[in-house]
Each structure stands twice: as C-alpha cells, then as structure tokens.
Write a protein that binds this DNA or RNA. Structure first.
Length: 122
DNA sequence: AAGATGACGCCCG
DNA sequence: CCGGGCGCCATCT
C-alpha cells in the first residue's frame, strides 16, 4: 500500500532516523540532517520527508543559520513549540552555537569505558 | 519527455 | 541584514 514517499525508502528512513535523534531542547538543520543521513546534497528532501511523515519532531529542524523556513502560521507554531522546549530565538534566528545538536557525539554517558586515567596529584 | 516546484544552501552585491 | 541568482534532486504537471 501507498508506495509514495520517494522511491528511496532508505533515504527516507535514514532522514527520519536522524531527525528523531535530535534531543528535546535542541535543533538541527535540513543540510546537517541530510548529511548525517548520508545524502549530503539532499537538504530539500529533508523538508519533503518532514511534510509527509507524521510523528517527527519537525519543530527541531531549521534552515541554515538557525532560521525558520516555514511560512505563515506554521512558522509561528514552530517558534512556539521550540520556545516551549527552551530553545530561544535571537531575533529571527536561533543561536546555533548554543542549540544545534551535534550528531555523532556520544549522546551523553555513552562513553565506552572511562574518562581517562587519573593522572595522579599535581 | 521537458519544465516547474519545493519546509534548502551558498555566494554576491 | 536583505534580496537575487544559481545549483541540487526527486516529484509532479
């Protein structure tokens, strides 16, 4: 049923996957997500997927520079939802240095074994 | 089959 | 900071 959704399920899957990995209170960009998913030049497809697939934390996806790409009410909705998660805007954009999620980073306490050898005194 | 489209991104002026 | 123009790529007309 419904083949829709691009003839590339793996692309869709990978993109959805990356999007779902963005933690609450954090954001990412179409481009970064595309790259993380393994399709570096498909930023546009990220938007397509967000529009078609339900249940994704779509509000956490911003355009490059931390600006909202949506228009009209959707834009307000996104801004509202993000604000509710603690993501603050600086004018029309989010301070990415502070809120952008970094993929590939061990999402906290996934550290394989330990910090590092003590390095005794001094 | 050719052209238009889109929740994009980057470079210029 | 703001447009404008061009490259991307799968879909849609």
């Amino acid at each position: 049923m419904t083949r829709e959704l691009t003839s590339k399920p793996d692309l869709v899957t990978a993109i959805c996957d990356a999007i779902r990995r963005i933690p609450r209170g954090r954001v990412s960009t179409y481009g970064a997500i595309a790259k993380e998913a393994g399709y570096p030049r498909c930023a546009r497809h990220v938007g397509r997927v967000l529009k078609q697939v339900e249940g994704l934390p779509w509000q956490r996806v911003l355009g490059s520079g931390g600006r909202i790409s949506l228009r009209g009410e959707m834009a307000l909705e996104q801004r509202f939802l993000l604000y509710a998660e603690g993501v603050r805007f600086h004018g029309r954009k989010v301070n990415m240095l502070e809120f952008e999620h970094r993929f590939g980073r061990p999402g906290r306490k996934l550290a394989t074994h330990a910090r590092k050898p003590p390095l005794p005194r001094k």
